[in-house]
Design a protein around this nucleic acid. Structure first.
Length: 373
DNA sequence: GATCCGTGGTG
DNA sequence: TCACCAAGGAT
């Protein structure tokens, strides 16, 4: 809570007059050139909430169609709270970070149960809701309820780091309180929501990460890194690790009732979404292609007593890169003349129509492209 | 506090 | 191909 005052004053010692001038320059620009976005047509806390969750680590252009569909399907927090999970996951299909939508429903249920459907108005209370952290709580509190608290996202880190030449590593958790304290001193008490959104618009226009145009920004006169030509030195951030390679076979098994799909476990990657069964190549005793197919066939027959003749599909492996993992998937196919009982694979036989209804991760959509087109 | 959790775009 | 980025949060 108590942020080291000497650390703050190392980077920030603007006068009140300078702060006011900064707010004026920023907000006048925002009034002139701020983006028109679907979630900016009103300040409904539910609308702000849905958009902010979707925008976590996701670009505006990606979010827009999902936001419009989501609000149409689940218009109120009460309808979100009572929606079936499968519908929610389907609405989120392709957006990534799928735990966001399940946490969003938990938060909606907390609103209904603990707050009688009325949103709490302070960032502190909002942050107790599942899936709402310091950034999202500040965004909702400031935009929907005019609370003067800075929303420190990637844009705010970058903008403030450049303006004030803050050389703290923004990937370290101790850094956030410093930016929070400085942002809270800079923010316009009269228009906190617009201030936060203006900082974000600034971060996606003149002060972008790779090709900034700081010399034309509306706050160029307040930009200390522009003054000495060190814009690109900020923000300081440690590099991310390279994704780890994984090698799988995807079993494309077709019976008269459809294709065998599995729902992924409740926790971990792509939780509760549907995919073809994946066999880790490291779990097989051989890497010789012919022996692999024989082993898969044996594996399947053990449980079914149905003869399954697997064959490698003549297609390139599907390669899909996540943040931390890179999957190399070779499809193997088998067509069954009757439908066996399942025990080895805890899956379901899905018709093409059912596959279209099920929530699928993008890597499975890639597999579908190879199989069903 | 380091790691996990997706996807699409860009140079 | 690859590294990096984009309105973060939970564990």
């Amino acid at each position: 809570m108590a942020v080291d005052e000497t650390l703050i004053s190392k980077y920030f010692n603007w006068s009140d007059a300078k702060i006011v001038a900064f707010q004026k320059a920023l907000l006048e620009w925002y009034d002139r050139e701020g983006r028109q976005l679907p979630w900016r047509v009103d300040h409904d806390p539910y609308h702000v909430f849905v958009s902010e969750i979707m925008l976590q680590q996701t670009q505006v252009q990606t979010v827009i169609p999902y936001y419009l569909d989501f609000i149409a399907s689940f218009p109120t927090v009460g309808e979100l709270a009572s929606a079936p999970e499968s519908k929610l996951l389907k609405a989120w299909e392709g957006l990534g970070y799928y735990s966001r939508v399940r946490n969003m429903q938990k938060a909606a249920q907390q609103i209904m149960r603990d707050y009688a459907g009325q949103w709490p108005t302070t960032a502190a209370k909002l942050q107790t809701l599942t899936g709402i952290g310091p950034y999202t709580a500040a965004a909702i509190a400031s935009i929907a309820f005019n609370q003067p608290i800075a929303a420190i996202d990637g844009n705010a880190f970058r903008v403030f780091a450049r303006l004030l030449k803050i050389d703290l590593d923004i990937s370290k958790s101790q850094t956030r309180p410093v930016f929070q304290a400085i942002g809270d001193r800079l923010i316009s008490v009269a228009r906190p929501g617009d201030f936060n959104q203006a900082i974000m618009d600034l971060g996606t226009s003149y002060l972008t990460a790779k090709q900034p145009d700081a010399e034309h920004s509306p706050v160029r006169d307040f930009d200390e890194s522009l003054a000495d030509g060190t814009t690109l030195a900020y923000p300081v951030k440690t590099k991310k690790a390279k994704p780890i390679d994984f090698y799988y076979y995807a079993l494309a098994i077709q019976s008269p009732e459809g294709w065998l799909f599995e729902q992924r476990p409740t926790k971990g990657m792509l939780a509760r979404l549907w995919m073809l069964p994946l066999i880790d190549r490291d779990d097989l005793t051989t890497s010789d292609p012919k022996e692999v197919l024989a082993e898969l066939s044996t594996l399947f027959q053990q449980e079914t007593e149905i003869h399954a003749e697997f064959h490698e599909v003549e297609m390139k492996p599907v390669i899909h890169t996540f943040t931390h993992q890179k999957w190399h998937i070779q499809i193997v196919q088998a067509k069954l003349t009757s439908t066996p009982n399942l025990s080895l694979f805890s899956g379901k036989w899905l018709s093409l129509a059912a596959i279209a209804e099920a929530p699928l991760p993008t890597v499975q959509l890639k597999l579908n492209q190879q199989l069903f087109v």
